[in-house]
Structure formats: C-alpha cells, structure tokens
Design a protein around this nucleic acid. Structure first.
Lengths: 223, 223
DNA sequence: GTTAACTAAACTGTCGACAATGTAGGCGTG
DNA sequence: CACGCCTACATTGTCGACAGTTTAGTTAAC
C-alpha cells in the first residue's frame, strides 16, 4: 500500500510512524490529549523521542500543540472535512495537470494497467477497490506530477488526515463503479496530454467524493 | 508586515524565528550545513532547542534533514522556483475562490481601502509597493478564505520560501503598475462574489508573476 | 455560598552527558 | 599507485535530571 516503504532508521522515526498509525486508525482518540510522560512509558522510549515524534505530527496537522500546555490529537468535524477537501481539490487538480505534462509513457501505461485491474475487481463486485485501489490511483498521479512540494504536502500530510476521516467516520461504501469511470476519464486525459482537462476532471472527481462523504455524514451520527 | 505578530513564548520559538529569518535573508547561505553544536553556541541555547527549531524549519521546507547526517538549508534553483509557484497557483487560486464566498463586507471594504492606498503609492512612483504591499494583499485574501489548512500551508510554509527566492535572487523590480491592475480586478471579482472568476484571475496573476521572475533569472547569473 | 489568593502536584521546557552513527585520514597490502 | 581496511574524530541520537509554567484543589475572607 505504501508506495515506497518508509524506512525508519531512528527511534524517533519508528515512534512517529507508530503514533501516526494509532492516531489515524483511532486507537488514540481524536481530540484526546497526548501526555509526553505517559507515551514515553507506553512506547518505552525517552521523552525526547516522544517530543520529536509529536513535533512531526504537528507538522502533518494531525496534532495541535500549545506552548506549556501540551499536544492534542486534532478534532474531526464536518467543517474540517470540507476544508480538507477544498485543499485536496486545488492540489490534486494541479497534480493531474502536471502529470499530463510530466509522466512518461511507461508510467502512463502502468496507470492504464492499474485501471484494468480495477475494472476486473469492479466487475467481480469486489468492495476491496475503494480503499487500496483508490489510494494507489491518486498516489501515482501525484507522483507523476514530479513536483516535490506537491508530493510531500499531499503524501506526507493531507492523505493521512483524509484516511483518518475515512476510517473514523466509517466510509467504505459504494460510489465504486462511478468513481471508476471518473478515474478512467482522468487517465484518458493524461494519455492525451491534455493537462487542462485532466485538472478539471480531477477537481470534479474530488468534489463528488466530498459530496458523497458529506451526505453520509448527515445520515450517520457524527461521533 | 506580519499580520499577527507571532508571539514567541519559548526559547525554541525565538530560536526558530531567528533561524528562519537568517535563512530567508541569506545570512545563512542556501545549501549550507546546519551544525547543531555550532548553532547552539552561536545562539546560546542548548542543542535540544536548536534541534526543535531545525525540525520546525524542516516542516516549512526551508531545511532538509537526513538521519544521522544532519540538516542543510535547501538549495535554490530555477526548477524549485517553478515548482513552488505551481503550488502557489493552485492554493492561492482556491483561496481567492473561497474568499469570494467567505469574506464579510467589512473585510472586502478594507481590501478595497488597501488597494486605494497602493494606488496613491503607485501614482507617486514609489517602489515600496512591491514588497510589503503585495504581501499584505495576498495575506488578506488567504486569510479571507477562512480555510485553516490553506492559511497555514501558505503563511507558515510557502510564503517564507517565496520570500527567500525573492531576497536571494534579488527581485525587486517593476511589474508594479501591471500587478496593481491585476489586484484591482481580483478585488472586483471578490466584491461581486464571483469565486470562479476570482480564482481564474488569481491564477493568472501568479502565473504572470512567475514568468516575470523566470525571465529575470535568465538574465542575471543565478548565484 | 461565592470569590480570591495560595499551595502543591503534574506537566512541559531546557539542559548537559553519554551512546551510536557517520566521516576522514593513515596504514598496509596487492 | 590504487584499493580497502582500520582507527580516531566529529556529529547526531537518546537519555535522565532539573527548571519553569500551568492547573487543580484548599483555605480564608467577605
């Protein structure tokens, strides 16, 4: 699932990844306080390591920190989700535009291949698609932009928050076949080297996805 | 110049701001190594404080770090500048769109007022405009988006890098009156609550600005 | 009973020392 | 002379202890 297996060489790295996982998956509750001493005993490392991990989480917008008070896991809210998707729309739209310029033929072919695999899955009625497949698709386009800023802001930052919303608000649902068609059109535009269209389609795709999630939010109790 | 004077309560805060200033303004050379021990004696704080400051700079993309090796100030390159402006275009375009939705009448009036002040300056032929005025204009629109992610990514991150490029490649130059007209049109679109147009105009504005800077880069030796 | 000042506990911020890792220079070998 | 190994040094990573700040609880005054 991870494109390039993130290699954790230092203790702070490992602790950062563990903490992030626990936060994204809700093992550590959204909005809860992160006590440095408590975590340091729990993960069996010194407070300095915990502090560094927390600082990195703060940079990813998964944690908020106040001087002399402490760090809390961010709280999730419909408002926050909307804002997140607005940023996603802007950045991934640009990523699609740049991908149409900068992906080489091999990468485009691979993307087509990925799509075909998805098609088989959708045909077989597998639910599996949504999570891993969707993530993979978006990753490739972002990486295809070849824009280092775009890549790091999305992959190191925003995507983890998106996944946190998905997991904790329990989105798995449908929109599978619809989303598949949207993906197909985006790849088509990229293959045609039409950046303008690719951006437009990607923005629509994310907008629809947002609306879909929002709709669910109103039907399930946001808790 | 700073919208809200950033209040540094802790030593790490102050050191972070001092370091950031020195990096952006080139006092610490782009691409140079940041030695923890050296900085800790120079700024007269412990290494722990320096480490925290460096970590935050890493989050702002002003510094790059490799485990067990150390941190370096980022290197500036035409390529990097282009990528930066692509991200800016996407994010500030979205900011303008949202500002048209979310700014209240008072904020729009103030923005108009700011523009009038600029007009007087431009009329008097002041060069002053470009730096402070331009920054102020863009800040207000970003803040007007009321989108917390957008605000922090741009203001805490990207803008400092932009300024670093401006300072170190020595951009001061013209484009004053032209840019002024572009600003005027953007405000007009926001006042009309036309988010679509505001986004388009902002994107053009930034694109022109990028082209202008790129043109200069080819004429001055980038060193 | 309510408010305010004080006190103590718990937590974060900072420090100096030690451990682990990377780096450069010298040495020997082919 | 070139290459690789080994040693000594410099730098980053990690730790435990202390200092400073916030917070909650208690007491006293009105």
């Amino acid at each position: 699932m991870e494109i390039a297996a993130e290699s954790a060489v230092t203790h702070a790295d490992k602790t950062f990844f563990r903490l992030r996982k626990d936060i994204v998956e809700g093992v550590i509750e959204a909005g809860s306080k992160l006590s440095e001493t408590e975590l340091s005993t729990k993960y069996d490392v010194s407070r300095a390591v915990i502090r560094e991990a927390i600082n990195r989480l703060t940079a990813s917008h998964l944690v908020e920190r106040r001087a002399n008070v402490g760090a809390r896991v961010v709280s999730l809210s419909p408002q926050g989700l909307v804002e997140l998707y607005q940023v996603r729309e802007a950045l991934e739209g640009m990523a699609a535009r740049l991908a149409a310029q900068n992906m080489n033929q091999q990468e485009i072919d691979d993307l087509q291949g990925l799509l075909n695999d998805h098609f088989d899955e959708v045909k077989d009625g597998q639910r599996y698609y949504q999570e891993a497949g969707d993530v993979d698709f978006h990753y490739r386009i972002v990486l295809g932009s070849k824009n280092q800023h775009l890549i790091s802001v999305l992959i190191d930052g925003i995507y983890h928050l998106v996944r946190m919303y998905r997991v904790q608000f329990g989105m798995a649902g449908p929109r599978v076949t619809t989303a598949f068609d949207e993906h197909r059109h985006i790849v088509q535009a990229i293959a045609n080297r039409d950046g303008e269209l690719a951006e437009m389609l990607m923005r629509r795709h994310i907008l629809y996805s947002k609306n879909n999630i929002e709709r669910k939010l109103l039907h399930t109790s946001p808790h």
